[in-house]
Simulated scan of single mutants.
Amino acid sequence: MKRLLIMFFSFFKIGSFTFGGGYAMIPLIEAEVVSKKKWLSKEDFLDIVVISQTFPGALVVNCSLFIGYRIGGPLGAIIGLLGVVLPSFFIILCIAVFFMKFRQYYYVNLIFKGISAAVPVLVLIAVVSLSKSLKKNYANFIVILLSIVSILFFKVHPVIVILLSGLYGVIFLGKKVK
């Protein structure tokens, strides 16, 4: 039970101080569960992130469910979920109640502009961190390149790219895994 409480407060801390959504939280979650607490290996964490992206819903919610389940079973999944969701719930509730009263203030606007400028950097850190555990080979490079080109230039929906990448893995990489 102590481990589950530690996990709850770890996710609660991450959920409380990370702006920008799931991708901005990924490096912080990785640092906590892989590097600091050593609950998961880097490879297991990457697998959880990939699986979480393929399920409907918010990435960080799915990650917290899978990580929590891995650490503490069904109760761990619920505790992980609550840990990451409750801070956002309380913050949004406070913003909804008080934000409109303070939105016109100059410094409040500057704070939000500063936060929004940091979010793309956090997403970039997540990409760099996740790419470190990816095998460096031509097949992965081609999948990455085709995914980027499809999404940016041909406006293919990311879900289609994920499904096609998964299909590629089953057809072409399934024979190599034993």
Rank of each mutant, 00 (worst) to 15 (best):
G21F: 13
V108Y: 07
A24V: 03
I115N: 06
I67M: 02
K13W: 06
G174T: 13
S41K: 08
V128S: 07
S64F: 07
K136W: 06
G174Y: 06
S133H: 05
S64E: 13
Y138L: 09
H157T: 03
F89C: 04
V127Y: 05
I144T: 11
N137K: 05
I115Y: 00
Y168N: 09
N62C: 04
S35C: 05
F112R: 14
E43H: 03
A118S: 15
E43F: 09
I29F: 00
K175T: 06
E32M: 04
Q104W: 10
A24E: 01
N137G: 02
F153S: 09
D44Q: 13
M1P: 07
V127K: 09
E43W: 08
V159D: 08
E30H: 14
P74H: 04
V97R: 15
M7Y: 04
S116Q: 07
I125P: 11
C94R: 05
K101E: 14
S35N: 10
F55G: 00
R103G: 04
K132G: 01
S64R: 08
K36R: 15
K175H: 07
G73T: 13
V49K: 00
A117V: 08
F154L: 15
S133I: 07
L152R: 02
F12G: 05
L122S: 06
V60H: 00
T18I: 08
V61S: 11
A58D: 07
V143T: 10
V121Q: 01
L86D: 04
G57A: 08
L46I: 11
L167V: 12
Y138N: 02
G169R: 05
P120T: 05
L59A: 08
G80W: 09
L86T: 15
L167W: 09
P27R: 06
I6K: 04
A77S: 15
I6M: 00
V121M: 15
L122F: 10
R103P: 01
L124A: 15
F153C: 07
L93D: 01
S116R: 12
Q53A: 07
G57V: 07
I14W: 00
S64K: 13
F98S: 13
D44G: 01
F90W: 12
V123F: 00
G76T: 05
V128E: 06
I6T: 10
C94K: 01
P74M: 10
G174V: 08
F11A: 09
K132F: 11
G73L: 09
G114K: 07
I171K: 00
Y107E: 15
S41H: 02
L110K: 11
L5S: 11
Q53F: 08
S147G: 15
S10Q: 09
N109S: 07
S165R: 01
Y69A: 10
L5R: 01
A58Q: 10
C94A: 14
F99A: 14
S10E: 14
R3D: 14
K13P: 01
K135M: 03
F172C: 05
S16R: 10
I78P: 02
G73C: 13
F99W: 06
D44E: 15
F99N: 09
